Simulated scan of single mutants.
Amino acid sequence: MKNPPKPTQLITKEFAKQLNANYNKKKGTTLTTAKGVKKEDANAVWYSLEALESYIHYIKTNGAQEGYNVDGIRFYFGVYPDDEKHGEKAGLTTLFLVPTGKKIEDNTAKVQSFALVAEPASVDIQSLDPMNYGNIGRPPSLVY
């Protein structure tokens, strides 16, 4: 079996360690809740390959059914509401995934133009559900 091509966005382990150390130093991983309790915040989120593959299948299939060419996933940082409903995650950082893409246009009735037109940027596909609830691990703060 032939090895797949190496992705172009890879970084060195050393640079990854530097990025993680910078995050831990500049963003801090300790927070104080509304009740004055100090908590260690998450600095990493883990999703299983199975969960990611399932989500990719979901967004590609449902995006196509809704007329989108799904072309990526945008990762957003968030913070859980600081209430009892969210239990131990209350007030902690999270990472959620949102599919991106472009609406597929029906070109059958259009007259072909030779003018250069900028291709529209990928947008968040609001009609598909975002994915959340990765595992922040125990303890929440990890060091790469």
Rank of each mutant, 00 (worst) to 15 (best):
K2V: 03
K2W: 05
P4R: 12
P5Q: 02
P5N: 03
P5F: 01
K6G: 04
P7M: 02
T8W: 11
T8I: 13
I11S: 04
T12V: 05
K13T: 11
K13W: 07
A16H: 11
L19H: 06
A21L: 08
N22W: 07
N22E: 11
N22F: 07
N22Y: 08
N24Y: 07
K25V: 06
K25D: 15
K26G: 05
K26L: 15
K26M: 09
K27R: 14
T29G: 12
T29E: 12
T30A: 08
T32Y: 02
T32R: 12
T33S: 15
A34L: 12
K35I: 03
V37I: 14
K38W: 04
D41N: 13
D41P: 07
A44C: 15
W46K: 13
Y55K: 11
I56G: 13
H57W: 14
Y58G: 03
Y58T: 03
G63F: 00
Q65D: 08
G67S: 02
Y68H: 00
N69D: 15
V70S: 01
V70R: 00
D71L: 09
G72Q: 01
I73Y: 10
F77Q: 11
V79L: 04
V79I: 13
E84P: 03
H86D: 10
G87R: 09
K89S: 12
T93M: 11
T93Q: 12
T93P: 04
T94Q: 12
T94M: 10
F96T: 10
L97T: 00
P99I: 02
P99A: 04
G101R: 02
K102L: 10
K102N: 12
K103W: 04
K103V: 15
I104Q: 07
E105Q: 13
A109E: 15
A109F: 04
K110E: 06
K110G: 03
K110D: 07
V111N: 12
S113C: 00
F114I: 09
A115D: 15
A121T: 06
V123N: 01
Q126G: 06
P130I: 04
G134D: 09
N135T: 07
R138P: 00
R138K: 14
P139Y: 04
S141M: 15
S141K: 13
V143E: 15
